[in-house]
Structures are given as C-alpha cells and as structure tokens.
Simulated scan of single mutants.
Amino acid sequence: MKKEIGVCVIGSGRAGMIHAVNFRRNVPHATLVAMVDPIESVAKQAAESLGVDTYYTDYKEALKNDSIDAVIVVTPTIYHRDIVVAAAEAGKHIFCEKPMAMNATECDEMIAAARKNNVKLQIGFMRRFNDSFIQAKEEIEAGAIGDVVLVRSLTRGPSVPQPWMYDLAKSNGPLAEVNSHDIDTLNWFVESDMESVYAIAGNFRCPEARQDFPDFYDNVVLTARFANQQQGMIDGAVSVKYGYDSRVEILGTEGVIFIGQVHEKTIVTANRQGLSRPVMNSWRTLYSSAYLAEDTHFIECILEDKEPKVTGHDGKKAVMVVNAGNLSIKERKEIFLSSLQS
C-alpha cells in the first residue's frame, strides 16, 4: 500500500484552487502532482503559483501519468461524467465536486465505472464536514429536538454567474450550481428520500441573460415532501450583492436547531452613521475548514480502503432533485421523483 497519494486537480478555477492548495500544503500523505485546465495560461499560472512542475491542458494526458493516483474534478458539470469515467478506467481514485452530473443516467455510469475499476468515488458536499453541521446531525440523532418535521436551507451568493452557467443545458441552473448543497443538507438531516418537489423561479438580477437564455433564473424557491412525510424548503439566489449567506433551520417536534448567520464576525461598530457589522463575503471563507476536512477524508479513504462518507449515491439523489425542480419550474406543477429515470 502506498503511503503517499499523488493528486491531480482537473480545473484551475476558484474551487479548484482551494482543493489544490489543500493538497499542496495541508493534507497529510498527499502530494499535488499536476494541474489541468483547457486554457494553457491558466493551467501554467496555477501550477507556478503552487510550486508544481507539471500542468496539462488535456485531462486525458494527465491520466497517463503513473505518478497520479487520484484526481479532483472541478470543471463545469457537463464534463463531469466523461472525466470521471475516464479517470476510473485509468485506475485513478476520484473526488468529484458537486453537482455530480447532469442527470441520473450519467451518475449511474460514473458509479458503475468506479465500482468496476475498484476506485474510490467521493462527491464534494463539504457541508457534511463542517463542525456545526456535524454537531447538528449528532443532536438530531440524540433526539435533542424530537422527530425532525421540517428542514429549511438557504444559500445566496453575491457573485454574478459565469457566462456558461446561464445555459441550463450546460449547468442545470442555480438549483445545481448553488443549491446542490442545500439539497444534500435536507437529504442528510431528514434521512429519507424526497418523494416530490414543487419549485418556482425567476430572473430578477441578471438582465444580460434574458435575451439569449430566457429560462435562466437567479432566484428559486423549492418545497419538498419526503417519503416519510417530513418537509423541506430551499431558498436559492445568485448575484444578491449583500454577501454570502448560508443558513439552515431544523424544526422538530420538541425544538429547533439553527445553523449559520449572515455575519462573518461578532464585532459591531456604532458611530454617527449607525451600527455596522462585517458580513460574510465568500463561501471560500465560511467553509475553508470543511474543504480541508473533506480533502483529508478522501485521502484517508484511499489509504485505509474505506467507503467515503459522501458517495456517488448521495450525489445522484441531489441531481435527481435538481432535475425534478427544473422540470417543476418549467411545467409549473408538483413533480414526483418516481416519474423521473432513477
């Protein structure tokens, strides 16, 4: 058994660089071997900034490198299936960022490829590795709030979407790009499969997308009914301007749990202009320790030959909800997940 795992990060954008820095400096028993990006200048700059000698513009070339034992897939969602299947066939362990894929069929193909080639497949739901989320899960299991009745989760981001995200055929929209974490949060805390969803959405802040992408939405609300009749609500938004906002409320029969706040710090300044308090401005700040924890867990799963805490099955469940939610928006009706390909 190898004692050091060679890692290649495929995708050198914001999230890719978070993982790359972790594997370069902070994850025990991991060595960052190479970076990949289809834009050569981006790949080269990423590698140089990390002190890594090797970079590629084609992930298929990276998969031929025998010093690479595992890949981190951080590309637009439309490419996930092909990269993951190719990596599995090359015998590389795989960490795939959310959303896992575009549809359930792609998820099944990714899961099958990993199983056939005996490699690990972990999905990037880093909130499961956040201390507050972990404690909330423990309190739920201990009966601190009785039986869970409703889980409400919201994510609102300040950033304007990347141009490719406007095309729902390539991104599956904000329900996938932003709210996959919220969907997984509901699934994790409720511990039951979603039976049906109803979603409404609109484009209120991104006028540049309206002409070419009339189905793009920057604000979405989704309600869910679970098989055990528990309830869920998701609130998602992009380009909100005021900051990064991630909060959860878990209502039980005997109490409630709150996770998260808008504010980054507890300091409050008062002067003639009024009260001011720093607002959380980035998911990279809020979940930095969770990213490190999930990256560390991935390497541990490889070295100890154990199942990741977040599997391809978890990723598929979230993708199916995204697809059902987008169909609900389009058809303006409740969608039963059983009606979708599973």
Rank of each mutant, 00 (worst) to 15 (best):
E4S: 10
I5M: 01
C8D: 02
C8Y: 02
V27L: 08
T31A: 12
V36C: 14
E40M: 09
K44D: 08
A47H: 06
A47T: 01
G51P: 08
A62P: 00
P76K: 13
T77Y: 05
E89R: 15
G91D: 00
A101T: 02
T105V: 01
A113R: 06
R115P: 00
K116V: 03
L121D: 04
R127A: 05
R128Q: 11
I140M: 02
G143A: 01
G146I: 04
S153A: 14
R156N: 06
W164S: 08
M165R: 08
K170I: 02
G173C: 04
E177W: 00
D184T: 02
L186E: 08
N187H: 15
W188S: 15
V190F: 02
N203C: 04
R210F: 03
D212R: 00
N219E: 12
V221R: 07
Q229N: 15
D235L: 13
V238S: 10
K241S: 15
G252F: 02
T253V: 05
T253E: 08
G255D: 06
V256K: 13
I259S: 12
G260S: 04
H263W: 15
H263E: 10
H263Y: 14
A270M: 13
Q273P: 00
R277H: 10
N281D: 08
T285M: 10
T285F: 13
T285G: 10
L286Y: 14
S288D: 15
A293L: 04
H297N: 10
L303H: 11
E307V: 11
G312Q: 05
H313S: 12
G315P: 04
K316M: 04
A318M: 05
A318V: 09
V322C: 09
L327R: 13
S328P: 02
K333F: 01
K333H: 12
L337P: 00
S339I: 05
